[in-house]
Amino acid sequence: STVKVRLGHLEVTLHNVSEEDVRELRELWKNGADEEDLRRWLEEWKK
């Protein structure tokens, strides 16, 4: 499914993403990950 995730002022649209992935991303964000960390996660996730 396609999910729009809003993290601060960063809005990311993920395609074919699982609930688990979204949860993981939100956890990262809650734990103080900055945009760099999130971008890195997204790069990994896209592979």
Rank of each mutant, 00 (worst) to 15 (best):
S1P: 04
S1V: 14
T2D: 05
T2I: 10
V3G: 01
V3F: 04
V3R: 02
K4T: 15
V5A: 01
V5N: 01
V5L: 15
R6N: 13
R6Y: 14
R6W: 15
R6M: 15
L7Q: 02
L7E: 01
L7Y: 07
G8F: 03
G8W: 02
G8E: 05
L10A: 05
L10G: 04
L10W: 14
L10E: 14
L10F: 13
L10H: 11
E11R: 04
E11P: 01
V12T: 03
V12N: 01
V12H: 04
V12I: 14
V12R: 01
T13I: 14
T13H: 05
L14G: 00
L14R: 00
L14K: 00
H15L: 08
N16P: 02
V17A: 12
S18F: 04
E19T: 10
E19H: 09
E19N: 09
E19S: 09
E20G: 09
E20R: 14
E20A: 13
E20S: 12
D21C: 06
D21K: 13
D21P: 01
D21M: 10
V22A: 09
V22G: 02
R23W: 10
R23T: 11
R23A: 13
R23E: 12
E24S: 14
E24C: 02
E24W: 06
L25T: 00
L25P: 00
L25V: 03
L25K: 00
L25C: 01
R26A: 11
R26E: 15
R26T: 14
R26D: 10
E27Q: 08
E27S: 10
E27K: 10
E27L: 09
E27I: 07
L28C: 04
L28W: 07
L28Y: 05
L28A: 03
L28S: 02
L28F: 07
L28E: 01
W29M: 15
W29F: 15
K30W: 06
K30A: 14
N31S: 13
N31L: 09
G32V: 04
G32M: 07
G32K: 06
G32I: 03
G32F: 05
G32D: 07
A33K: 04
A33E: 04
A33D: 03
D34G: 14
D34C: 03
D34Y: 06
D34K: 13
E35I: 11
E35P: 06
E35T: 09
E35N: 05
E35W: 08
E36P: 06
D37K: 13
D37R: 14
L38A: 02
L38I: 14
L38P: 01
L38R: 01
L38T: 02
R39L: 12
R39E: 07
R39N: 11
R39V: 11
R40K: 13
R40L: 11
R40Q: 12
R40W: 05
W41H: 01
W41E: 00
W41P: 00
W41V: 02
W41I: 03
W41T: 01
L42W: 06
L42R: 00
E43D: 12
E43Y: 07
E43S: 06
E44A: 14
E44G: 05
E44S: 10
E44N: 14
W45G: 02
W45L: 08
K46Q: 14
K46P: 05
K47V: 10
K47I: 12
K47C: 03
K47W: 08
